[in-house]
Design a protein around this nucleic acid. Structure first.
Lengths: 178, 178
DNA sequence: GACCGCTATATGCATACTCATATACTGACG
DNA sequence: CGTCAGTATATGAGTATGCATATAGCGGTC
């Protein structure tokens, strides 16, 4: 999976470090990846012939290993884009916690939702801050904006759900106290 | 992470196979897990003393290894529930594809979104079918319903996003044809 | 000149996860 | 009686991921 992302980011030749920075700036909200993971994957892509690398001097640090996408790499990228939309396995750790919160007596649910709401709101804020900086005229910018937009709408829906849930929890908690 | 879920499902003694079935029925929308992964994790939880197991005859199949949660297991579960809400690393494979869809010339975006919408709508339908069957009176049912509810709201938001996105894509595609 | 932060690559280790495969019992259906 | 679906456990192999750590150049600041 990371393969496609790295091949996509290598639209222009870049070092692993640059790819990782690009990643953090533009794609952080859609995929998480570690520097070590990126280096390893680039290494594998090179063995597979999807990229080539060349060591080049850097103006402000140690030597850089610059990766270039090959024709085969471009092909692999297009093949990935031609695949059906990949719905990932759902993995919501906080929902799993909430699912069993009844075992904690139910008294913790409200505090948990409050905390969750705060964290989600924070994430939403960072997404909203990025949005106006995207130029939607060119194709890449347009698609970037589409993905960012889902992040924003999804987070808003989650916040609404937090509010709805907290409204439902309060009377239950009150009943328990009686 | 799976530890907490398994310990939660072991509110009553169950075999690995039962846990997996329970999983598919009630928690499929919040965490994905493989049977082999569940067996292995139960094995580890036993080594750690959080569960014990005993082989018992089955009425309709081979022998079952039934797991029981220990006091230490209950403690570990409560500790997990007391942790802050765990926001998982974002991993949206289909968003990653969309992010780079400009490389495919942009002509594929609409078909991609249509396909995605269909898949998401299908998932939403299965969630909505489960909803009315949940009894929200008891604590576990209530919390189950909360998590299901987020699944439903999140999917509705995604569908809206698909529609919004398709409306934005069409004029661009028309412009490209000129 | 010492130290800090950023740039830059790479590896080791442990865990998590996926997919395939082996084994074997039971009940239903044709 | 054969076969299939469902019940049931377990392991091997390969991949992905996360976290820590080692190394080292460069530029600025105190």
């Amino acid at each position: 999976m990371l393969d496609g992302i790295l091949l996509g980011l290598l639209r222009e030749p870049r070092s692993g470090y640059d790819v990782a920075s690009e990643f953090r700036r533009g794609a952080r909200h859609l995929w998480a990846a570690d520097l070590s993971q990126i280096y390893r994957t680039l290494g594998r892509l090179e063995k597979e012939g999807h990229v080539t690398s060349r060591v080049e001097p850097s103006s402000r640090g140690p030597e850089r290993r610059v990766y270039r996408r090959t024709a085969s790499g471009k092909e692999a990228l297009l093949a990935w884009l031609a695949e059906a939309p990949a719905l990932p396995p759902e993995r919501f750790a906080y929902l799993a916690q909430l699912f069993f919160m009844g075992e904690a007596g139910g008294g913790r649910t409200l505090a948990f939702l409050k905390d969750l709401r705060r964290r989600l709101a924070e994430r939403l804020r960072t997404l909203e801050e990025i949005e106006p900086s995207i130029d939607t005229e060119d194709d890449h910018g347009f698609h970037t904006h589409l993905t960012l937009r889902l992040g924003i709408l999804a987070h808003r829906a989650r916040l609404q759900w937090c509010d709805e849930s907290m409204r439902r929890v309060r009377p239950r908690a009150a009943r328990r106290r009686r």
